[in-house]
Design a protein around this nucleic acid. Structure first.
Lengths: 336, 336
DNA sequence: TTGAAAGCGCTAACAA
DNA sequence: TTGTTAGCGCTTTCAA
């Protein structure tokens, strides 16, 4: 295997110095057009690909950002990855991905932090999840810029992309309450794109503004197993019913619909069901599930963009970016 | 922001030379226990994190592997990412991820190749997709080890993890044909984990071994849009019916079931429907979709493991690894 | 507009 | 068992 061609080879072949070649590949404007042309020709001829590792060492910048996927990953990471990957490529950043698996939680978190520091990435994208604070703290100590997805937070070197689920929940719930449909159940999911506490706050406010109070017993948690949840709901709906079942995640919404039907409950005749994230699940289900649509791809793209603003010292209008959302009413509810 | 502590700082503080510190952090066995202890103490005290970029430059190795996600990504990438990320961490490799989006296909492929080369990763994991050959060729020119997921292929520096879909398809189809149910439709998906041609070959063999021939008109392609496919199928099943609908992807299976029901076709009474990959979709659907289960997480893990074997010059028993699969019969079929 | 040379933080002979 | 020293391939002053 012949050695890779280096900047030295290019310099020699084109009869200029290292420095000039460096200027050319970095687009410096001071190089004479003719020189530049010649160098570029040689670069092409020798198929020279500048070594980013060497550059990284010289500049103390890797133009790489790390992204940490937590274990409890929601569906449609696919879109998130698309947004992150595409934007990274367009802005000329590499993406280093890390996962935190379920075995040995704590150790994994510090292990990943350690690896991130050693790899000398320029910044980090994190997802809201149960270990988020620990993760943030571990990374913040090294003054690495951070962008958090799914939780509103910011400081000098930290920003976030989030969904204003508090308001979304409030807007969703409000019409029901105003119509006297006040028996609402919230199904709280294991999922990182929304902050559960915010959803609950939103619900509470909707009740409060109507002089009512939301009964916190009307919150049940789902697990990450569809079949387990289904079994739970099937039992639950044997002798219960509510005006509205508001699910933090579509998958739970589908389970609710199916188990309600199983128990002879008509949807949306007797009970409305609403999901969140507007995944494929929603349209595949019968009756089709109403859901809150959220621009997942864009959240990934925005996260990368925001992070690069930190990295390049660009002006940042807002460090906490709320993405737009839109309620899509389908067959499982009739809010209006 | 104070400068990061380097190996020099550690050497000075512990009164030894650079080389010794280097030996300690690399676990060399020649260092005297006492020296090692002292150095380790200083490392801890100064919170020294070796700079992988500098190490990469010195060793011409980055201990990083690249993974390229194509645009038409199947669901449950989630699991794949888990397998890749976790295994990368356990084997001490960083994962660099790239996406190839839909805009400007060709350019993107060469763009990504270029970035991969510049970043000096040690090896690459690729997914089977329409541009796979172009991608492989582009990377192979630089003698980077490659592992392909979803397609059986290998050479000196290339291996693969795949599902033997040819046999899977054959095994699935065979019992039907033997029972005289020879009117089978194959729904060919846009999805990278299986090789369509192999599925078709498997079907053909099943027919062939029974002295029959599979009519290639009985292949229809689905798109990546569930709703579009649903509309297509709804029209299709208005005046058609088959013994079996064999879908390369669960999502299509669900669409088939739903549109068949819409048209009054009883499943599995009049028609069997079978999917592939055994995603959540299969269990969420009514009747539940029979499907071919495949260890997606493991495929990711195996890919990383195989690649590191190439990288570390380890013995490789087999460069083409077929993963186990298992047919899970649910409500949408009655093969037996 | 170009070149010379120091330095980025580490590894790996080679010597001691 | 430890230290010295020459790179690894680039960027970036500083001079010319």
């Amino acid at each position: 295997m012949k050695k890779k061609t280096t900047i030295y080879d290019v310099a020699r072949e084109s009869g200029v110095s290292l420095a000039t070649v460096s200027r050319v590949i970095n687009g410096s404007s001071v190089v004479k057009a003719k020189t530049k042309e010649k160098v570029l020709a040689v670069i092409k001829e020798l198929d020279f690909k500048p070594n980013e590792v060497a550059r990284g060492l010289a500049t103390s910048k890797t133009t790489t950002i790390a992204i940490v996927f937590p274990q409890s990953l929601f569906a449609h990471v696919k879109d998130m990855i698309g947004g992150i990957g595409d934007t990274g490529r367009h802005l000329d950043y590499n993406i280093n991905m890390y996962t935190t698996d379920d075995i040995g939680d704590d150790d994994t978190v510090s292990d990943v932090t350690e690896r991130i520091i050693k790899s000398r990435v320029d910044g980090v994208i994190l997802f809201n999840n149960e270990h988020i604070d620990q993760m943030i703290e571990g990374i913040d100590r090294y003054h690495l810029p951070i962008v958090v997805i799914g939780k509103q937070i910011s400081n000098e070197t930290m920003g976030s992309i989030y969904i204003d689920v508090k308001n979304a929940a409030k807007e969703l719930i409000m019409p029901y309450i105003e119509k006297g449909k006040t028996d609402i159940l919230y199904v709280s999911p294991k999922q990182n794109l929304i902050k559960n506490d915010d959803v609950i706050e939103g619900i509470q406010e909707a009740y409060h503004e109507n002089g009512l109070v939301f009964d916190e017993n009307n919150i049940i948690s789902s697990t990450s197993s569809y079949e387990f949840n289904l079994a739970t709901f099937e039992k639950y709906f044997k002798n219960k019913k509510h005006d509205v079942i508001f699910c933090g995640y579509d998958k739970d919404g589908v389970a609710v619909i199916q188990s309600a039907i199983e128990n002879g409950i008509d949807i949306p005749g007797e009970m409305d069901v609403v999901g969140m994230l507007n995944t494929s699940y929603a349209v595949m289900c019968r009756p089709q599930l109403s859901s809150l649509n959220v621009p997942i791809y864009d959240m990934g793209a925005l996260a990368v963009r925001l992070l690069t603003k930190f990295l390049q010292g660009e002006a940042i209008e807002s460090k906490e970016i709320a993405v737009r959302y839109m309620f899509i009413e389908r067959e499982s509810s009739h809010q209006n």
